[in-house]
Amino acid sequence: MIQHPDITVLYLDDEKDNLFVFKANFNRKFEVITTLSPNDALHELDLHHDEIIVVISDMRMPDMNGVEFIKRAKAKYKNIFYYILTGYGHNEEIEEAIEDKLIEKYFTKPFDALEIEKAILDATSHLRRN
């Protein structure tokens, strides 16, 4: 049973192993949708934007980086909480995305599941009925 079935998280990463680890960590907490490419993630948003409340994107991907993807997604779907997950740490582009309120915050790989869960629950606390 999912602890917070009213929270759907879309996680985008170009590495299948990372998608597996993310889903294994969070599929009992939230509804989780995973995608391997920014275009697939945009398609999932088009299909499920009424359910998706949180989007977490890898930063470095071949076709489009995480900030570029979030700019495209947020232009269409503003009422979603966006985050970056990166294996490369803080950089100027991430800092600008935070300052411009494009993303809520960023997480580093390997991720701390409790940190991500807390951020999601804090951001969505006004939406939950628990």
Rank of each mutant, 00 (worst) to 15 (best):
F107E: 08
I70R: 01
K78V: 04
I70N: 02
D58F: 06
E51Y: 09
I120H: 01
E15H: 11
M59H: 13
V21N: 11
L12Y: 06
R72L: 11
D13Y: 05
I7R: 08
L47A: 13
K78E: 13
D6L: 13
M1L: 12
G89E: 10
I33Y: 11
I94W: 12
L19F: 01
L45F: 04
L102M: 12
K74P: 02
A113D: 12
R129K: 12
N91V: 02
L12F: 06
F81L: 01
R60L: 12
N25M: 07
I84F: 05
D17R: 10
E93D: 09
K105M: 10
D46Y: 04
Q3H: 10
F22D: 08
L42G: 10
R129H: 13
S57M: 05
R129D: 06
S37C: 00
D50E: 14
T8Q: 12
I98M: 14
K109P: 11
E92L: 12
A119C: 02
D46E: 15
H126F: 10
D122H: 03
K16D: 15
L45R: 02
I98P: 04
E95G: 05
L121I: 13
D100I: 01
I94R: 09
Y88P: 00
P62C: 00
E115F: 06
Y77T: 01
S37G: 01
L42Q: 08
D40S: 14
T108E: 15
R128S: 14
R128L: 15
L85S: 15
M59I: 02
N130V: 14
D6Q: 15
A119N: 05
Y106S: 15
V21K: 08
A75S: 15
N79E: 14
S57R: 02
E104W: 00
E44M: 07
I94F: 12
D58M: 03
S37M: 01
E51N: 14
T8I: 00
A75G: 15
E93P: 00
F107R: 00
K109Y: 10
K101R: 06
M59V: 03
G66T: 02
D63P: 00
F69M: 05
K23R: 08
H43W: 03
N18A: 11
S37F: 02
V67L: 04
S125D: 14
D13E: 09
E15Q: 13
A24M: 10
E99Y: 10
E117F: 00
D17W: 07
R129I: 09
L127F: 15
N91Y: 02
N91W: 03
L10F: 07
I84W: 03
D6W: 05
A41F: 10
T86C: 13
E117V: 00
E68H: 02
V55W: 01
I103N: 07
R72W: 01
I94M: 12
A75M: 07
L121S: 11
I33T: 01
E31I: 14
D13T: 06
H49P: 08
R72E: 14
F22S: 07
P5F: 07
I98E: 14
T86P: 13
